[in-house]
Design a protein around this nucleic acid. Structure first.
Length: 435
RNA sequence: GUGGGUAUAGCUCAGUUGGUUAGAGCGCCAGGUUGUGGCCCUGGAGGCCGUGGGUUCGAGUCCCAUUACUCACCCCA
């Protein structure tokens, strides 16, 4: 039996991405992931956002309550299981719920006038049919801003997301925003929507007919061709907002304009999680086909309270790491390089090898990246390894030079070779080579 | 859940109307040439041709089944 990674999962591998390999193979290289996560961390730090780490599984009820029973995620995509103690648990299908649970559990939102800004990174699990850009275990980076109900919070969350994408090299994206209303305005809109749709029901797709009952809002973002004409004329949530929510939405739009973020209002934008209120947004990229959402989020003002916490408003987003890397791959943006050793130590005799290992240990302790042969291979093989690993220098450890405390250092680019004191090797490798 | 495509070396792929010991490029190993790597040359290791049936004198090739992978729909990040 030869085991394979479970369907819809993937490994992140070491090494360079061979251009001859499948595109997906090229995405899953650890140095790219480290780079991406580094960019995200750096951007978060500039916004004063601190990291939070929560378990990758939670009580199933947490997701049912927060994401919503009628959503696709809860109704058919959860990795739900009972552990040996009989607990009903689920691998997290999104990032926000666990963060909210942790915040409530630890009392992180103490009183008024407090803004909590956190970010997270990690795996997300959904039982779906895998395809390009969609996995059963995928990974997201995300942030949550808790405690602010003003439009500036929405704007900063979106700004952070776009800054992150831009610094990845993903500048040419499209930001779409909408307002999905509030608990007060939504029922009104829902009925208006039903009234509008009812005469057209027979012509709608099967999914849309079902959603007419369960969640008519979702009909708006149906992609079924036969639904499009009907949807065109459907009443939009935006036209049913109460004054407060409408003002909020307009202020968010104005705020985005103030800081020079282009966007389009998509009146049919609906997110797949029930907890969103007011602002909803997605960042899409054309290179992704139908899996085109690279970042998505919105405002979820009632969520913390519904989980037994204080009534604190929140805004956040999640962004798929695989999606982002996929776009970069299609755009042929390099995105992060492997760290290569400065020098490769070459040794032949036993005594040379022992000395080389000691030298390597000293150099590494001093912060210098070096490699050496551990397989007893020939000098030719060692030189080839030195060349292919990307080292700038080959350092020859030679018995005849060691008596004088020296090693030979060859620049692999121009072939110039000099002898230096072994004790000064670290300094030589870090700075300009003498001679 | 619904459709389509593909399974041959570590990777990317050839393989004629069915016909002898199944090939290439890259990678890997050894050697030659270079002072001691790259470029070049020689050699080598590495394949139950996804699996199980069937047709046939003979199947990588044709047929059926099965599994896996993959792409698309749905949905999402």
């Amino acid at each position: 039996m030869r085991y394979q990674a479970p369907r819809g999962t993937h490994d992140v591998l070491p090494g360079d991405a061979d251009p001859q390999q499948r595109p997906d193979e090229r995405l899953f290289r650890s140095h790219k992931w480290q780079w991406l996560e580094g960019v995200f961390r750096d951007v978060c730090a500039r916004f004063g956002v601190e990291e939070i780490r929560t378990p990758i599984f939670e009580a199933t009820g947490l997701f049912r309550r927060s994401v919503g029973e009628e959503t696709d995620i809860v109704s058919k995509e959860m990795y739900e299981f009972e552990d040996r103690g009989g607990e009903d648990l689920t691998l997290r299908p999104e990032g926000t719920a666990g963060v909210m649970r942790a915040i409530v559990e630890h009392g992180l939102m103490g009183g008024e006038g407090q803004l909590l800004k956190v970010c997270y990174t990690g795996p997300i699990f959904r039982y779906e049919r895998a395809q390009r850009g969609r996995y059963r275990q995928h990974h997201q980076v995300g942030i949550e801003y808790l405690g602010g109900d003003g439009p500036q919070v929405d704007v900063e969350v979106i700004a952070l997301g776009l800054t992150y994408l831009r610094e990845l090299g993903l500048g040419d994206v499209e930001l779409q925003i909408n307002s999905v209303g509030t608990p007060a305005s939504r029922p009104v809109h829902r009925e208006a929507l039903r009234d509008y749709l009812r005469p057209h029901l027979d012509g709608l797709s099967e999914d849309s007919r079902r959603r007419f009952d369960t969640n008519p809002l979702r009909v708006l973002d149906s992609k079924a061709p036969q639904d499009q004409a009907v949807i065109e004329g459907a009443p939009a949530m935006l036209d049913y907002l109460e004054p407060d929510a409408k003002a909020h939405f307009e202020a968010v739009c104005a705020g985005l304009e103030d800081i020079g973020i282009p966007f389009t209002v998509n009146r049919r934008l609906v997110r797949g999680l029930d907890y969103y209120q007011k602002t909803a947004f997605e960042v899409v990229h054309g290179a992704l086909g139908s899996q085109n959402v690279v970042l998505g989020g919105g405002r979820y003002d009632g969520l913390v309270e519904s989980l037994g916490g204080p009534a604190v408003p929140g805004v956040g987003f999640g962004s798929g790491i695989e999606r982002a890397l996929l776009v970069l791959e299609q755009l042929e943006r390099p995105g992060g390089e492997r760290r290569v050793p400065v020098a490769y130590l070459v040794a032949r005799s036993d005594s040379e090898r022992r000395y080389a290992q000691r030298l390597a240990a000293e150099l590494r302790a001093g912060g210098v990246a070096v490699e050496m042969d551990l397989l007893g291979r020939s000098m030719k093989a060692q030189m080839r390894a030195a060349n292919s690993c990307g080292a700038a220098y080959a350092v020859f450890v030679r018995d005849d030079l060691l008596e004088a405390g020296q090693v030979a250092v060859k620049c692999l680019e121009d072939g110039v070779q000099v002898q230096v004191q072994a004790a000064e090797l670290a300094a030589s490798l870090n700075g300009e080579m003498p001679g």
